[in-house]
């Protein structure tokens, strides 16, 4: 197993400091903030995702919490990737990232951009949940508004 495959520069760069780190407050124009908390009970990672929608479009997104480099970088990359996207496009992206993280036979996906850096994670099965936590939490925020999701 090659550590440099897992800890690619993009991952390390987004780990420290992560982008779009912090919370969004409900007050202000553009409607309410959707929010969900994610928790990986196995390792104790916790993060919260905040999304401000403008109709069907993700107008702004932030996250906060504490976790390992994989979980933090995945969340950071996710916020950059989904900002400005329509809800349906976010769902499609979720599926493509999920395939990238879990399917060994997944063909290279040129549309993923920086997110492709997460591809090394699938060689480390114990760490896949670290990378998926923020995405599941984003899904929960978009679907239910407020909830706690768990990777277990």
């Amino acid at each position: 197993m090659d550590l440099k495959e897992l800890y690619r520069d993009v991952i390390l760069d987004h780990n420290r400091p992560p982008r779009n780190f912090g919370r969004l407050e409900s007050a202000g124009a553009g409607g309410d903030v959707l929010h969900a908390d994610g928790h990986n009970p196995l390792c104790g990672d916790r993060l919260s995702v905040y999304v401000r929608m403008n109709g069907e479009r993700v107008e702004d997104i932030r996250f906060e919490g504490s976790g390992c480099a994989i979980s933090t970088a995945s969340a950071s990359l996710m916020t950059e990737a989904v900002k400005g996207k329509e809800r349906a496009a976010v769902a499609r992206l979720f599926d493509r990232v999920h395939t990238l993280l879990t399917r060994h036979d997944a063909p290279a996906d040129a549309t993923l951009g920086k997110l492709a850096a997460l591809g090394g994670v699938r060689e480390f099965p114990a760490r896949v949940k670290c990378a998926t936590l923020s995405w599941h939490t984003l899904n929960a925020a978009l679907e239910r508004g407020a909830a706690t999701v768990s990777t277990e």
Binding site: C43, C68, A69, R127
Partner: peptide, 14 residues
Amino acid sequence: AGVHAHDLGTILDT
């Protein structure tokens, strides 16, 4: 400092 315990665990495991 700067390395989460789980990252450390993976790096040591390799």
